[in-house]
Design a protein around this nucleic acid. Sequence first.
DNA 1: GTCTATACTCCGATAGAC
DNA 2: GTCTATCGGAGTATAGAC
Lengths: 215, 215
Amino acid sequence: MKDRRARRRAETQEEILRIALDVMAEEGVAALTMATVARRLGVQPPSLYKYFPSRAAVYDALFERGQLGYLHAVRQAAEGMEPGLEAMGASLEAGARWIMGNQVLAQLLFWRPVPGFRPSEQAYAPALGIHAHFKGLIEGAVARGEVHQDAAGEEGLALAASLIAGVVSQQLANQPEAGYEDGAYTRLVPRLPGIFAASYPCRGKGRKMPGERVN
Amino acid sequence: MKDRRARRRAETQEEILRIALDVMAEEGVAALTMATVARRLGVQPPSLYKYFPSRAAVYDALFERGQLGYLHAVRQAAEGMEPGLEAMGASLEAGARWIMGNQVLAQLLFWRPVPGFRPSEQAYAPALGIHAHFKGLIEGAVARGEVHQDAAGEEGLALAASLIAGVVSQQLANQPEAGYEDGAYTRLVPRLPGIFAASYPCRGKGRKMPGERVN
DNA sequence: GTCTATACTCCGATAGAC
DNA sequence: GTCTATCGGAGTATAGAC
C-alpha cells in the first residue's frame, strides 16, 4: 500500500519536528542542527534529508505549524461570541496562553532569532488570517459602540498587536519559566481589552469595560 | 609609557566591539564568530583572545555597554524635568529611539537570542538602575495626582515596561528597516503615557494627559 | 529508506615561535 | 602582541552501496 508508506513517512516527519522543538527549547531556537536531531532520532544525519530538503525547510514547517496553531487558538476562543471587546479579550487571553505554552514556536513566529531564515509565503499565510480575525473583532467593537471607529484602522490594529506582544515579550525574556497563571506580565492580559478601549474612547467616558480596573 | 600601551589596548578593544556589532547586524546576533571579527580587523583569530578571553566575554561587554547606553538615554531624557507623566513620556520616547538606533544591542538586552549566554552580574547591574528610574518617574506622577498610587507598584512598572517592549518588539520583528519616525509601531510611542495614565485613573475621568488622543 | 563514507567549510581555543 | 600551526570538533549536504 502506498498509503502505509505515506503514513509512515508523515509520522517520521512529525517526530523530526517534535525532536526539533525539543532541541530548540533546550539549546535555543537558532541552535537547531540537523546532526543533533539525527542523533536523538537514532539515525544518521543524511537520512533526515529524505524528509526535509534542508534545515530551513524544518524551520519553515515549524513556522507554518506555529502560525496555524496560534490562529486556531485565537479563533476558537472567540467562537460563538459576538465580535466585540469581550471576544477580543477572549482571543487575547487565548493567544497569550498559547504563546506561553508554545514558547519556542512563539519565538520563531514573533521574533527573528534565526539569521537568514525567512518563512515561505505558504508558511506566512496564516498570519493574514490572524490579522483579519482581530480586525473583525475590533470592527465588531466599533459597531457596538464600545470603541471609537478609529480603533479599527491600522493604528488600532498595531496597538492591539503591540499590547499582546509587549506582555508576552517581557514574560518570555524575564520570567520564561513562569507559567501563564504566575507570570508577572501575563497577569496583565485580562486588563488589555480595557486598556485598548480606554485608548479609543467612543464618546462618553466612564463606560465599564471588561477587564477594566476597579478602584 | 604604560599609559600608551593601555590606551592602545583599549582602542583595539573598542574596535573589536564595533566590528562585532557590525557582524551581528549583518549576520544576526547569534551568528557572531571570532573568526569573522578577526578577518575584518585584519588579524588572525588567536590575536583576539589577547583582548577578550572568550566569545562570551565579547557578548558580555556589549551587553553591559547596551545597558549603560539605554540607561543613559532614558535618564538624560528626563533630566531637569519634574518626575511625572511628562518626564515618563520623554523617557519612553528616548528609550524607543535608542532601541531603534541600536537594534542589535537591543536584541541582546531584551530578547535572549544567544543560546547559552548569560550576562555577568556586573553587565546586568545597570538594568536595576533603569527599573529604579521608571519607578521614580511613576512615583512622581502619583505625587502629582496624575495617576492612581497603584501605578507605582510592581504591576504598574510591569505595564509600563510591557507597553514600550510591545511597540519596539513589533517594530523590530515586522518593520526592522523602518526608522523611528516612519515605523507603524513606534508611531504609537507618544501615546503610551496617556494609555498608561488611563489604565490607572486617579479619580475624575477626562483629565487631559500628554499624548492623549483627541477625538 | 537507511546506511557508510566523504567533501567541504567552518568554529573556538591553545601552544609556542618570533 | 602577533603570528603559524594545530587540536578537536562541529556543521550541511551529497554520492553511492545495500
